[in-house]
Design a protein around this nucleic acid. Structure first.
Lengths: 236, 236
DNA sequence: CAAAGTCAAGAGCAGTGCTCTCTTTCGTGC
DNA sequence: GCACGAAAGAGAGCACTGCTCTTGACTTTG
């Protein structure tokens, strides 16, 4: 919102920000499926059709919220990881994991929008979402890479055979992200990524059942430690 | 549907089965959020209000589909595991994992209903869903327990410290399920469970992106092997 | 100051979950 | 073989949804 913009542009940007804010609050109280353009308009103090001046469609509103969510998660993860010494590789992984979980528990509805069931009929436009959507795996990959470069990765678990096709995929990823870590480490990282979000999803989505774990914090820490060891990250 | 039932009862059971079938097909084409009692009625060739003779509400219809889905997944997992020698513990785990993934890819919408975002405003009634809903973790736990009893568990990864509260939870679970496996193995199993579904969810929900992995089968096998090793399951 | 651009309002369409009342169908006990 | 009553279906109606289209008013710009 630079001052150089016309008053029109500034007012428009402000309204868009308001719509995002209200949309996220509705997401939090009613879920993505029940997200209602009319309800957002009501909360904005405006007639329903007026919203379509700012947002092309309900899908566009969803994209707004998706990008907003990815960015907030990315910021939280970056902030948490930034507070850890760069050479404490296990610590950086733990910090990332904790940040993901903390954000997911704080914003379960937005988390569900990003990492839960696809919203039927909605396809996130890649050109707007891939950037913000890859920040967490980006942060994780930097940890693996730094650990490899530092030569501290411990092969705690035997490396499975890697078929040719999978090796090709790994090679492409390594090239795209400009990495030096070998296939085995890269692919182990993918497991760590998926497993981390699996743990968070199970807790946020209530798969454990209501009364199974009285200490979900401890459970998650335990899972993170096991994952860090499986990834071969050494204690600080 | 026993023959002992009256014609009326049999007709009713048949109609209920039809409703489930149609409901699941709608789930597959439009998602849980868009599941509409009226649309099911239309496909059944019946007026919308007539459905309410069979299903108390939309939530009740959802519960029908949830139970149906858990049962189908449970059957698939049991069948796959049953085809493996009981003393091939790693093989049993791999079979369970493959069965979960195969079913999830075959029925992504039902998978999303069971393991994705909670459906807003819907709370699955525990008395009808916990039974069918715990069949997969039940199968997994039997593998851990059998491996422990057979004395073949290899501690590939160092066991993290287990806080008192978490140990209490583990103890309760062990009592409820009549297990002998120690806390560490039990909790490692919980990670394996969550991680398995994390991997499946990432693939089914498209988190990897469209073109990242050309060989998702190989990727999943790789992840399963790593998980099996982290769980300490020995090769056959 | 007038043209161009921007925006809010409202009516209206097609769909939703669900309830209520009314009619038809059909199995069963006599 | 048939009348009865329970079960099932039909239809209207209420209050809601996302979204489109038209109309008229306002603001910026040349």
């Amino acid at each position: 919102m630079p001052d150089s913009a016309t008053p029109r542009q500034r007012a428009r940007a402000q309204t868009l920000a308001d719509i995002t804010r209200i949309g996220r609050s509705h997401l939090a109280t009613e879920g993505a499926a029940a997200l209602s353009v009319r309800a957002v308009a009501r909360d904005l103090g405006v007639v329903s059709s007026a919203i379509y001046r700012y947002v092309r469609s309900r899908d566009d509103l969803l994209t707004l919220l998706v990008v907003d969510g990815y960015d907030e998660l990315g910021d939280a993860v970056d902030a948490a990881e930034g507070a850890v010494a760069r050479d404490d590789l296990r610590g950086r992984f733990l910090a990332i994991g904790r940040a993901v979980r903390a954000w997911a528990l704080r914003e379960p509805a937005t988390y569900a929008l990003l990492f839960g069931s696809p919203v039927p009929g909605y396809q996130a436009p890649a050109e707007r979402t891939t950037g913000p959507g890859t920040r967490v795996i980006g942060a994780l990959v930097r940890v693996w890479e730094d650990a490899y470069v530092a030569g501290v990765v411990e092969a705690a678990v035997p490396a499975p055979r890697i078929p040719r096709a999978l090796a090709t995929d790994a090679r492409r990823v390594r090239k795209e992200l400009d990495l030096t870590a070998p296939d085995d480490l890269l692919l182990r990282g993918v497991l760590g990524w998926a497993a981390l979000f699996g743990c968070v999803s199970f807790e946020v989505f209530g798969q454990y059942g209501a009364d199974t774990f009285s200490a979900p914090n401890d459970l998650f820490e335990h899972q993170l430690e096991l994952l860090a060891s499986t990834m071969g990250l050494p204690a600080a």
